[in-house]
Design a binder for these strands. Structure first.
Length: 303
DNA sequence: TATCTGACCTGCGCGC
DNA sequence: TGCGCGCAGGTCAGAT
């Protein structure tokens, strides 16, 4: 399931293989994949044809290719989306949704998506209003505009301009629980179910703990562990289950073997030996260690 | 205004 | 063998 590390790996691939190339006649093979492009497939293709790709950017789980028209091709991989750079003559993948021919060597960018939770759209770029750490404001100000539909997405914790203090204050203002907050992309972006569980385990925090009474040092520890798990996953090329996440060359990452709690129900915790528990949470699963991450209505483990 | 919930979607694994 | 069901989960509209 693509979260920040997986999307960043894809972005790097696009930067290498797609930036600088021109776009030909785009084919939309499944309308749901461009459902957020309100003007429809004809307009989508028309805005891309003949344009050149000038950069590959990312915020959280969103990535976009800036175009020489001043617009951007925005992509979200959803649950199972893949952006592949393939020779045009290669047989189409079973779940190929959109083809974007590229000039040069005859290759094309393909959007493949089994579950169709992902989407593509062409959007205008607007001034970036996300929270910026004060000491980086000048540098960032000259940097980015963002697609208008993702203005509400917060900076991600690997962004040099991510403001730890502002995040801590926003977290304490919320009347919600830790894991819900980590999954809230308007508060902190790029973290999904897998890395939220992993970061909470590393920080020895229970996801049901209230954000409002989390002490500042605990927030700092949590952020530190969020960053650590994202960096570790990025180094391993991301996490892939069932081959649903791959880079632009179709290769899977290896971080699945680095997971400490996610998907390890009834297996011993590597830290204390207690059996990892799974509980239903927001129509999905949460994995945690009952000993290292005691429920908040009892006592918390020492950091 | 802030927070929560359910729908969307497809393929796989499992039980019967 | 085939059918039905549960599960996986990111986002957003609508409800509370």
């Amino acid at each position: 399931m693509p979260e920040l590390p997986e999307v960043e790996v894809v972005r790097r691939g696009l930067e290498r293989w797609v930036v600088g190339r021109g776009i030909g006649d785009v084919s939309v093979l499944h309308p749901r994949s461009i459902r957020r492009h309100a003007a429809g497939a004809g307009d989508f293709s028309g805005r891309l044809a003949g344009r050149a790709v000038t950069a590959a950017r990312r915020r959280g789980k969103y990535l976009w290719l800036t175009l020489d028209s001043g617009e951007a091709l925005l992509a979200h991989l959803g649950m199972s989306g893949q952006l592949l750079v393939q020779p045009a003559e290669r047989a189409p993948e079973r779940h190929l949704r959109v083809r974007v021919p590229l000039d040069g060597d005859g290759g094309e960018l393909r959007f493949v998506d089994q579950r169709t939770f992902g989407h593509l759209m062409v959007d205008s770029l607007v001034a970036d209003t996300a929270q910026v750490r004060p000491d980086t404001a000048a540098a960032v100000g000259a940097d980015l505009a963002v697609p208008s539909v993702i203005r509400h997405i917060a900076r991600d914790p690997l962004d040099s301009a991510f403001d730890d203090r502002a995040f801590a204050e926003a977290l304490r203002r919320r009347r919600t629980t830790l894991k819900r907050a980590l999954l809230d992309q308007s508060l902190i972006s790029g973290v999904g179910n897998i890395y939220a569980d992993e970061a909470l385990w590393r920080a020895r925090l229970h996801g049901e703990r209230a954000t409002a009474d989390l002490e500042r040092p605990r927030v700092a520890t949590l952020l530190e562990q969020v960053r650590a798990v994202l960096r570790d996953a990025l180094e391993d090329g991301g996490t892939s289950f069932d081959g649903l996440y791959v880079n632009v060359n179709g290769e899977s990452g290896y971080f699945e073997r680095g997971l400490k709690v996610y998907g390890r129900r009834d297996l011993p915790c590597e830290r204390c030996g207690a059996l990892i528990r799974r509980v239903a949470f927001m129509n999905r699963s949460s994995f945690s260690c009952p000993k290292c991450q005691p429920e908040p209505w009892f006592s918390e483990a020492a950091p």
